[in-house]
Amino acid sequence: MTRKTRRLWLVIACVACLGTAAALILRAFSSDIVFFVTPSQVEASPPPADRTVKLGGMVVAGSVKRDKHGETPIATFAVTDGQAAVTVHYEGILPDLFREGQSVVAIGTVQPDHDFVASEVLAKHDETYMPKEVAEALKKSGKWDPRFGPPPSAASWNTMTVQDAGKNLSAPTTAPN
């Protein structure tokens, strides 16, 4: 029995050591593990123009300008983390989820004039899952504008799923997305 107890403590000690080591390593490399940097980080210390960085943040409402360069669409928009904003230029097709107020990650380089030229734009969606009818109803009632912030908590509109959604379903709400 004491051998079993000793083995148990040995295993616990090993796992604890390993866990601590892993935690320390992760802490040390924490800045390298992040997938993207924020606009205020770019503002504070602009990376050199030859280094590819991933810039993450929210698309500022009303900042999106779409253009066409021959066949390829060009988009210019501002990305913010609430403290700073960086203007992003992108040539290509934006992902389906791209919209004002959406979180995006732009992969590219920071130009000397502090603008960002993206070679790729990824949309980052949030953890809220909401039926289309509920979103329409919330927008119509003026309770929420997706361009300016995250939706209200699910508890506040869960009952709506039953009541208002039925009303809205009967009405033609085939708005193009």
């Binding site: 997938f35 993207f36 953890e127 508890a155």
Partner: peptide
């Protein structure tokens, strides 16, 4: 802990789920 492209969990032990029932 880190900035990821993957969104945070919708169902957590501490908070209400951010997902339609």
């Amino acid at each position: 802990w880190w900035n990821t492209l993957h969104q945070p969990d919708s169902i957590t032990l501490t908070g209400a789920p951010t997902m339609s029932a």
